[in-house]
Simulated scan of single mutants.
Amino acid sequence: MRLPASKPKRARIEIVPMIDTVFFLLIYFMIASMTMTRMNAEKVALPVSHTAAAKPADDIVVTVTKTGLFYIDRDPVAESGLTSALNARLAAKPVSAAVIINCDKDQPAGRFARIFDLVKQSQAANVMIATTPSDQWEKRP
């Protein structure tokens, strides 16, 4: 007895599951990007804090590196011109803009106090200190 030959089925590409997957990935990355904080400052080793929070977008960052160099956002500035340069930046920002001091943890306390005093001499409404959240610090080797 001879069986009839069956026709091979044509392959189909199902597009609906692919669209669902693409939208899922899009939503995932949109939500993940909302939790990211981009800080416009030089990289320094920050002290640890249990109450650390994310930086708002319209703030100004004053950085003191381990070697003692000063930056406002990413622009180098001399210590003597810090207050005047900071006043110029604050004039261009909204009234609610805060100044964040991003001081390396290896700087002496006297140097930090001097920088804090210079920042307070500017017209900043708020002054904050950048720290590393303690849970992130504990994960580092």
Rank of each mutant, 00 (worst) to 15 (best):
S33T: 09
P47Y: 07
R10A: 13
F24S: 09
K139S: 13
S122A: 05
T51R: 13
I19W: 02
I72C: 02
D106T: 15
V16Q: 08
D73I: 02
R38C: 07
N40A: 08
T67H: 06
W137Y: 11
V95E: 14
P47W: 04
T83G: 07
M39F: 06
R74V: 11
A41H: 06
L26F: 05
E42S: 11
I60D: 03
S84G: 04
N126V: 15
A52F: 12
V99M: 02
T65S: 05
R140L: 15
Y71C: 04
R38I: 13
Y71P: 04
I101N: 03
I101T: 06
G110H: 05
G68P: 03
T63F: 00
S49E: 12
F29T: 11
K93S: 04
A85Q: 11
V62Q: 02
A97R: 00
D59Q: 01
S122M: 08
I31A: 15
P4Q: 11
Q123S: 09
Q136I: 14
D104R: 13
G81M: 08
A109P: 10
R111W: 06
Q136L: 14
A5D: 06
S49D: 14
V48H: 15
V22F: 11
V99G: 01
D104I: 03
P8I: 01
V99W: 00
A78S: 15
G110L: 08
L26A: 10
P8Y: 00
S6N: 11
P94M: 00
R89S: 11
T83I: 10
Y28C: 12
A130Y: 09
A109W: 08
E138R: 08
D104V: 04
H50C: 04
L69W: 03
L25Y: 04
I72H: 00
E42P: 07
C103I: 13
D58W: 00
I115K: 04
V99P: 00
V119R: 03
P17V: 03
V48M: 15
M34N: 10
R114P: 01
P133Q: 10
Y71D: 04
T83N: 06
A78H: 09
T65A: 02
Q107N: 12
N102G: 02
C103D: 11
K120C: 06
K66C: 07
V61R: 01
R74K: 15
R111F: 08
K43V: 15
D73V: 01
V95D: 13
Q121D: 13
T51P: 10
E14L: 14
E42T: 14
S122G: 03
